[in-house]
Design a protein around this nucleic acid. Structure first.
Lengths: 154, 154
DNA sequence: CGCTTGCTTGGAGTGCACTCCAGGGATCTA
DNA sequence: TAGATCCCTGGAGTGCACTCCAAGCAAGCG
């Protein structure tokens, strides 16, 4: 219920997604439960993301606890967006691997993003088709409901 | 090797209403594999839909084989649309129950459809937000790729 | 000092939506 | 009459994306 995924201003350059109550860079050390609150994911899921290779290496405190940075939050915001598109986690892991592999994977990342973009466009089109069907059915039920109501109450 | 189930349609995954190759009403008797071909679902899935109560009672031939009608195809088309919205199968079963229950469930069906419509609108908005992020990233990678290319080949 | 809270781990469990299997029956073609 | 092909059933298995568990460590508090 603490979904702090606001629709922020799209003014950032590359990966600057919307995120509210952050600490300034340099003082950006978040515990796992803070990140959970900020992202809406559970701590379980955050650890699981790390295990499957979807996260970069997360900083640790001197006692071994995770300390997330603003950069990690940026990455999680992107992951959240990709998740909304229905992209399989395995594909996101693939993208994460490309990022870790270095600059020579730019082209491949580019292709992956373009393919994803096409998928999103297709999904939007699908949903708009569904919306049309839904609207037709809703009109039908509105008429039927009206007919029933007038027949029964007046 | 009893059933050639998952042959499916190799390319046509648009899930649009393929109402072209239907038989006229009155001569509308389709076997399960014909329906599978028409809908893109597998015969397994069609039987499973029936088992969980997502389908009305399907006609049977004198030997007990399923014979689908145009009406069944209509229902499957709606189910396909609802599936695209991400609606859980359990909710679709609920809708199917309401339809079976009779005319006095009109209002409830109406509410369900309206809620679904809102969900679809929200989903489209989400996807458009994701599209914006994706486009920003794609622009970034296009520039980076260009820089790399000009550095190397020109 | 003990208690509570929050974090750690590997591994096991959950829910959804299929997906497949074994074993058998009916129909068609050669 | 044989073989191929389609279909039937209940139940078991699969893959994905989490979700939870048990056992234990570390810090803060009265």
């Amino acid at each position: 219920m603490t979904e702090t995924e606001s629709t922020g201003t799209p003014t950032d350059t590359c990966a600057g997604p919307p995120q509210g109550n952050r600490r300034p860079d340099g003082a950006d050390k978040y515990t796992i439960s803070e990140v959970a609150a900020l992202t809406g994911l559970t701590a379980h899921t955050l650890r699981w993301y790390e295990r499957i290779g979807l996260m970069p290496h997360i900083d640790r405190s001197h006692t071994g606890q995770r300390r997330y940075s603003n950069r990690d939050l940026d990455w999680l915001a992107l992951v959240g967006k990709l998740r909304l598109t229905g992209m399989p986690v395995a594909d996101m892991v693939r993208y994460a691997e490309l990022v870790r592999a270095g600059d020579h994977t730019y082209t491949e990342r580019f292709e992956l993003l373009k393919r994803t973009r096409e998928d999103v466009l297709a999904r939007i089109a699908e949903l708009q088709g569904t919306l049309a069907v839904l609207d037709r059915k809703i009109d039908f039920y509105a008429d039927a409901g009206l007919a029933l109501a007038s027949e029964r109450t007046r």
